[in-house]
Computed example of a mutant assay.
Amino acid sequence: MSKVLLVEDEELNRVLVRAILARASDDAVRTVELVEAGSLAGARTALADGPVDVVLLDVNLPDGNGLTLAADLRERADRPQVIALTASVLPHERAAAMSAGCDAFLDKPYAAQALVDLLSSHLGR
């Protein structure tokens, strides 16, 4: 079973992701172990507890920019795939996310199937 870390400060968005994953038609996505963090500090604590396969990363967090976490993860031997989930969709913002170490970018608001498809393509890499 794959482990996914969702880093998202908005509770409603976390509820939405949980619901999308629970209803996914893709077995690999539906059965992921989902760990949640509402801040960068929470994400770092979750990552210290053990490796994850994929990080679903909000860029704008209350205690900093999620791209700093993406850059830190790029240096890890057990580097997870990082998918930025953000409403920051300007071309330079997308480029900054990819430069920081994100493997993919999904604009908010996103369709449920788009999240499932993107997550599915990054599990097991």
Results as ranks from 00 to 15, higher is better:
residue 85 L to E: 08
residue 19 A to Q: 15
residue 7 V to K: 13
residue 65 N to E: 15
residue 29 V to H: 00
residue 18 R to C: 06
residue 45 T to W: 11
residue 47 L to F: 09
residue 62 P to I: 14
residue 65 N to V: 11
residue 42 G to V: 06
residue 44 R to S: 04
residue 65 N to K: 14
residue 102 C to T: 01
residue 30 R to N: 07
residue 84 A to L: 14
residue 98 M to W: 05
residue 8 E to I: 07
residue 48 A to F: 12
residue 33 E to C: 01
residue 38 G to K: 13
residue 118 L to N: 00
residue 100 A to P: 00
residue 54 V to Y: 13
residue 61 L to P: 00
residue 93 E to P: 00
residue 42 G to M: 05
residue 8 E to D: 06
residue 65 N to H: 14
residue 49 D to W: 13
residue 89 V to A: 12
residue 124 G to A: 11
residue 88 S to L: 14
residue 36 E to T: 01
residue 65 N to C: 11
residue 72 D to C: 01
residue 3 K to F: 03
residue 34 L to F: 02
residue 125 R to K: 15
residue 58 D to F: 01
residue 98 M to S: 00
residue 96 A to K: 02
residue 97 A to N: 12
residue 54 V to L: 13
residue 66 G to E: 15
residue 38 G to N: 12
residue 16 L to V: 04
residue 44 R to V: 09
residue 66 G to L: 14
residue 68 T to C: 03
residue 95 A to T: 10
residue 23 R to L: 11
residue 69 L to C: 02
residue 63 D to M: 08
residue 38 G to F: 07
residue 73 L to N: 04
residue 45 T to L: 10
residue 99 S to V: 10
residue 21 L to C: 01
residue 116 V to R: 13
residue 107 D to E: 11
residue 74 R to Y: 04
residue 34 L to W: 08
residue 98 M to T: 03
residue 114 A to E: 09
